[in-house]
Amino acid sequence: MPLSEQEQRLLEEMERSLYQNDSDFVARVTRRQGRPTYTSITIGVLGALAGVAIVILGLVMRQPLIGIVGFVVMLAGVLFALRPGMGAPKPSARAPRTPSSGGSRGPASGGSSNGGSFMDRMNERWDKRNDPNQ
C-alpha cells in the first residue's frame, strides 16, 4: 500500500531533519567500518573448513554433540573471516565532528561534484516539485 501525500512529506521532513541534525550518525551508518584483512579471511576460511570436517566426523560417528561443536566452529570461522580489520580507524577518527551546515553538504561528502549527495539532490527535486514558489 503506497504512502499518502501527507505521509510522504512527513517522511521526507523527518529524513531531512536527521541529515541536518545528526550528521555524525548518518556518517557512521553510511560509511564502511573497515575491510577484513587477508589474514583474518585465511584463518576464518580454515576455521570454517575445520568446522565442516568436524560436522562430517560427527555424522560418521553418529554423535550429534560433535556435529554441533563442528557447526559452532564453522560459524566462528565465518564470523572471524567477515569481521573488520583491527587496524581500521573508527569513523569518528577519520571525520572530525563539525557543526551542521543546514543540510547542504559539499562535494567532498561522498556525492558527485555537481550537487552533493544523491539524497540531497533527490530532496531538492522533491522540494521543487512540491513548492510552486521555487
Rank of each mutant, 00 (worst) to 15 (best):
P64W: 13
Q63K: 15
A76F: 10
G47E: 02
I56N: 09
G58M: 06
A48E: 03
G67W: 05
I68L: 15
T42M: 08
G67I: 03
V45H: 04
Q63V: 15
I54C: 08
G77A: 04
I56T: 10
M61N: 12
V55E: 10
V72P: 01
L59A: 09
A53R: 05
V60T: 08
I66M: 12
M61Y: 08
V45S: 07
V69Q: 08
I54A: 10
V60Q: 10
P64L: 13
G51W: 00
M74Y: 05
L57G: 14
V73T: 11
P64S: 12
V55P: 00
L46Y: 07
V52H: 05
L46T: 10
L79A: 15
I66L: 14
G70K: 01
A50K: 07
A48V: 03
L49S: 12
I56G: 06
G47I: 03
G47Q: 08
V52I: 15
L79F: 15
M61S: 14
G51H: 01
L75K: 02
M74L: 11
G67F: 07
P64A: 10
G44K: 03
A48N: 08
I66P: 04
R62A: 13
F71E: 02
A53E: 11
L46K: 11
P64G: 07
V45G: 04
G77I: 01
V78H: 05
V78Y: 09
G67E: 09
G70C: 00
V72K: 05
A53G: 13
A76Q: 06
V45T: 12
L75A: 15
I66H: 07
V45N: 09
A53V: 11
M74T: 02
I66A: 10
L65H: 12
A50D: 01
G70I: 02
R62H: 13
V72T: 09
L57I: 07
I43T: 09
G47T: 03
L59P: 00
A50H: 04
M61T: 07
G58N: 03
I56R: 08
V69R: 06
V55A: 02
I43S: 03
V45P: 00
L79N: 08
L65S: 15
L79G: 10
V60D: 05
L49Y: 09
F71Y: 11
I54D: 03
V45I: 14
M61L: 15
L49C: 13
M74R: 10
I43D: 01
L65D: 11
L57Y: 13
T42V: 12
G70D: 00
A48W: 11
G77L: 00
I54N: 01
V55T: 07
L75S: 11
A48S: 13
G44V: 01
V52E: 11
A48H: 06
R62M: 11
G51F: 03
L59V: 01
L46E: 06
Q63M: 15
T42C: 11
Q63T: 15
R62K: 14
I56Y: 13
M74S: 09
A48T: 13
A50F: 06
V73C: 08
G51D: 00
V73G: 04
T42N: 06
V55L: 04
L79T: 10
V73D: 04
G58V: 02
G58Y: 06
L59T: 06
G58L: 04
G58S: 06
I56S: 11
M74H: 09
F71T: 13
G51L: 00
L46N: 12
M61E: 12
G44F: 03
V55I: 14
M61P: 00
G58A: 07
L75F: 07
